[in-house]
């Protein structure tokens, strides 16, 4: 599955949900299920927003990146879970070039606002930075 196909799958999940609360339920459910290997829940893996914390780790094997993430808030965790699902299993180059349009399309653009301070922008940046680092190793 390509990155865009994975994004489209997530968009399909949200389509037809008119009520904000249903959308958030979907995100919260993903957030509650999203865990990181406890060994990576360290300050080195932490992205601190104003109100939430997100831990991210990435592994690189066979030319593909695999992400793990967890947040102390379910909403940031749910967003992290979607990013993990979309970006894992792809090459560093594919991740670096990815246009993450799903956030806008599922109506979560507000979470990209820097004033929201939930670390979502930083989360995306960190995931791309991992890809850049792995790419430079190649």
């Amino acid at each position: 599955m390509t990155i865009n196909e994975a994004q489209d799958n997530i968009i399909a999940d949200f389509e037809g949900l008119d009520d904000w609360l249903d959308k958030y339920q979907l995100i919260i459910d993903r957030g509650m299920a999203q865990k990181i290997d406890p060994q990576y829940k360290t300050p080195q893996h932490l992205i601190e927003g104003c109100q939430s914390k997100v831990w991210i780790h990435a592994d690189y094997a066979d030319g593909k990146v695999t992400y793990q993430a967890e947040s102390n808030t379910e909403i940031a965790g749910g967003i992290a879970a979607m990013l993990v699902e979309i970006l894992s299993g792809h090459t560093p180059r594919e991740i670096m070039d990815a246009d993450l349009y799903f956030i806008d399309r599922i109506g979560l653009k507000e979470h990209l606002s820097p004033t929201r301070s939930n670390g979502m922008l930083a989360m995306m940046k960190q995931m791309k930075l991992y890809a850049i680092a792995f790419n430079s190793v190649n």
Binding site: W20, L21, Y24, I28, Q51, S52, N72, T73, I75, N118
Partner: peptide, 11 residues
């Protein structure tokens, strides 16, 4: 988490 509760209350 207060952020989660605040976000839902906001909506």
């Amino acid at each position: 988490h207060p952020y989660d509760l605040g976000t839902i209350l906001d909506h």
